[in-house]
């Protein structure tokens, strides 16, 4: 087992190097390159730009720049934000809690609903309920996440005046938990629909597959109550592949969360990324893309390890 884990971690090192190299390369070809922010200053002189080029090491070959950037990044130094001069890690760190609040709330709700709806759909295959769920998840999958957000704003904020349209709290009012929750509702619904459409289908098809297995027939044959068959025998075995697929969708979920943030002006990482890209705030853009991608890799490793630990049928050598 330990050998497997070690191998899995080692295998991800070239992937991490590839990710950083790719993002580094793309960002370097952004118009204006790393100095874009400075080039736009009206007072900057040619000499100053040359000075900055040397200071940042931009006159060196690209691979040397990459190596020195990677060396610093490994020590948590992603440079400084061009906007306020603060370390990139701190700038991004400030935004993490808001994004986590949104993502974790949405994830918990959508996973719970996915299991309930998926199991009910599977046990009543071809029922009216199953058809309704199928139609809804098809619609959910065809919907751009930002559009869903706009429609929710249209219905619940503009028409019904029930909920606020943007931000995390009402500005100028002391923080209250209730206010925060109110602001959370629409973005969370958006993200839940976005993930639920896919995930309830995973649960459904995994359950349907398990229900056809011999051991389910055996359990029924020896007279186990249907409830027990469903929850003790079927669901348990259906869980593992579902959880794996759900965790592999992590990158997909992050994209959805970041887009949702822009629609609702949620002050998280998504917002920061768009603002930084717009401003040409190059270190923040690179730092965020790299950090989030590495988080995806870590989640993938964890998924594989959990799979290996939980499923005794699989022998890893």
């Amino acid at each position: 087992m330990w050998a497997y884990i070690a191998r899995r971690v080692l295998l991800s090192i070239p992937i991490m190097i590839g990710i950083t190299a790719l993002i580094f390369l793309i960002s370097h070809s952004l118009p204006g390159g790393p100095l874009a922010m400075y080039l736009n200053l009206p007072t900057i002189t040619h000499a100053q730009i040359e000075h900055l080029t040397i200071q940042f090491g931009l006159n060196k070959p690209l691979w040397m720049q990459y190596v020195s950037w990677l060396g610093k990044a490994l020590h948590g130094d992603f440079g400084r934000s061009f906007v306020d001069g603060r370390p990139v890690l701190a700038v991004i760190g400030d935004r993490v809690p808001a994004t986590l609040e949104l993502m974790v709330t949405a994830l918990i709700i959508s996973y719970l609903l996915a299991f309930v709806l998926g199991v009910v759909s599977a046990t009543r295959q071809y029922s009216a309920f199953d058809y309704t769920m199928t139609v809804l998840s098809y619609a959910g999958m065809a919907m751009p996440v930002f559009w869903l957000g706009i429609i929710l704003i249209l219905v619940f904020s503009v028409d019904l005046h029930w909920l606020p349209t943007f931000g995390m709290v009402t500005p100028g009012v002391p923080y209250s938990f209730l206010d925060n929750v109110k602001h959370l509702i629409l973005p969370v619904i958006t993200l839940v629909v976005y993930t639920l459409a896919q995930e309830s289908r995973y649960v459904r098809s995994s359950m349907l597959e398990v229900m056809q297995q011999d051991y389910i027939r055996t359990a029924r044959a020896k007279g186990a109550p249907e409830r027990r068959v469903l929850y003790r025998h079927a669901l348990r075995n259906a869980l593992l592949p579902v959880i794996t697929v759900m965790m592999l969708d992590f990158a997909f979920l992050i994209s959805g969360a970041l887009i949702t943030e822009t629609v609702f002006a949620w002050p998280g990482m998504g917002r920061l990324f768009f603002d930084s890209l717009q401003d040409g705030n190059y270190p923040v853009v690179v730092g965020m893309a790299v950090l989030v991608s590495l988080a995806v890799v870590v989640v993938n490793i964890l998924t594989d390890i959990i799979y290996a630990v939980v499923d005794p049928r699989i022998q890893y050598s």
Partner: peptide, 22 residues
């Protein structure tokens, strides 16, 4: 297949926007 892994690990939104600017 490692290149595939790399491309799948970067959330697509980042790639779409960065490449659009580039």
């Amino acid at each position: 297949m490692r290149v595939v892994d790399i491309a799948l690990s970067i959330p697509r939104l980042f790639l779409l926007l960065l490449l659009s600017v580039t």
